[in-house]
Amino acid sequence: MTSSAFPARTSGRRFHFLFNRAWQALWVLPLPAWLLLFFAVPLGLLVAISFWSVVNYRLTPDATLSAWRYVLGLDFLWASFWRSYGLSMASAVAISLLAFPASYAMAFVAAPRQRLILLGLAIAPFFTSYLVRIYSWQVFLTEGGVISSVIQAFGGKGESLLNTYFALFLGHATLALPVVLIMQTIALANVDRTGISAAANLGARPGAILFRIILPAARPGLTLGLLFAFLLSYAEFVSASYLGGGTFQTLPILVTDLVRAGQQWPRAAVVSLLMIASLLITAFVTVLWAYREKG
């Protein structure tokens, strides 16, 4: 009797245990599934395509290094690479600096309810298409456009601002500023207030509080904001072609040129892989720095 009861209880416990495990697995499963579906497989495909060839405008599976040889042999490749990298890094730094006072005000001056409303307003531009927002910048920046008319009214020359770095930067900022605002605000809002009060009570000046208490504490969030601004600007194609007018030849423009001209998908894949590699290195270094232990 008893001997038969024991196995039943253990099997029930085991079932329970297994059920728990399965239940957990079910919830964890999306992570590897998504990673596989949206990261590993496309990346693998991109790597594979970079070894394919194009025969009569048709992408043909192959195992050739010709696309790699072609792209790495381009004499302007590294000039374009550093131009892309430098321009987007400059934009990322400028956007972060520009966003900081606003984020600071939202985190420390605004009441929580106001902060919510202000953050909502910061997200509002996402409700219109990015392409539309970029096109509308053209109306402001072009010769005889809104900005140049205003400058002319005050006696200036009022030349077109299109195809300048300023125009390109506006495009980058249109894309990245809201994201940076949100990330910075969250980072600053989460800084421990007791540290700030203690410093103030001990007579620290506002500058010292900012640089020695707030900035170090919010560093991970602020750095991630910078990183996101960089990622978004680096891969940006629309404002590079419509506001930069192709004057600033960046890698995303090179990718589209390679595809358009003779359907050179393998070469475009090589450039994309170069971009992904440089992004990964940048992201890795930045994250390491953001979370490094205070020395």
Binding site: T142, E143, G144, S160, L162, N163, Y242, G245, G246, T247
Partner: peptide, 19 residues
């Protein structure tokens, strides 16, 4: 001397405005 590289729509607006 080059200002930019344009597609169809880009050329229309650049030439019209005197860009």
């Amino acid at each position: 001397q080059v200002r930019g590289f344009y597609d169809y729509g880009g050329m229309l607006s650049a030439l019209r405005s005197g860009e």
